[in-house]
Simulated scan of single mutants.
Amino acid sequence: MELCPTCGMLLKSELPNLDFPTRFFYTTCPYVNQIEQKIKRKQRVVKKEIDPIITHDDIKNAPKTYQAHCPNCGHNKAAYIQFQTRSTDKTMTINFTCEKYGKCWHKD
């Protein structure tokens, strides 16, 4: 897909015909782009690093509760952070982190 640098419209492609090579063109402006026969087959994909949504500092500074029981160890003290992950008429998602072992779980 190519866009015309002059008018910004989507260019049409034309297959080789007689002495004319394959090209991109647009009917209302004079721009024409000849297509080279060299085509790159491989393109290197660079994996982007993903930043965490909740950092360790967020968990350290988060409020604590004694009413959340860890499903892994049963400890009752946990830090919690609330997120609005769905539409605003739905309840917030609460992410808990166990103070004893650092395991995470959530409650919708």
Score class of each variant (00 low, 15 high):
9 M>G: 15
84 Q>I: 02
11 L>R: 08
103 K>V: 07
45 V>F: 15
25 F>H: 09
36 E>Y: 10
21 P>G: 14
12 K>H: 05
88 T>A: 12
2 E>C: 09
50 I>M: 13
67 Q>T: 07
54 I>V: 13
9 M>V: 14
49 E>A: 12
102 G>M: 10
73 C>V: 03
65 T>S: 04
5 P>W: 00
75 H>G: 00
84 Q>G: 02
35 I>L: 12
57 D>A: 14
78 A>V: 02
69 H>L: 00
51 D>L: 10
13 S>V: 13
22 T>N: 11
25 F>K: 05
35 I>D: 07
35 I>H: 07
57 D>L: 13
63 P>I: 04
25 F>S: 09
100 K>G: 04
40 K>R: 15
3 L>M: 05
22 T>M: 14
37 Q>Y: 01
12 K>P: 01
104 C>Q: 10
102 G>A: 10
76 N>V: 05
12 K>G: 06
30 P>Y: 10
32 V>L: 05
12 K>N: 09
19 D>L: 14
99 E>N: 08
68 A>K: 06
22 T>K: 14
75 H>A: 03
76 N>Q: 03
14 E>H: 07
89 D>I: 11
12 K>F: 02
93 T>R: 00
85 T>L: 09
67 Q>I: 04
6 T>M: 01
83 F>G: 00
50 I>E: 15
100 K>D: 08
64 K>Q: 09
55 T>F: 07
31 Y>Q: 03
23 R>K: 15
21 P>K: 15
53 I>T: 07
82 Q>N: 06
38 K>D: 12
68 A>Y: 03
45 V>L: 15
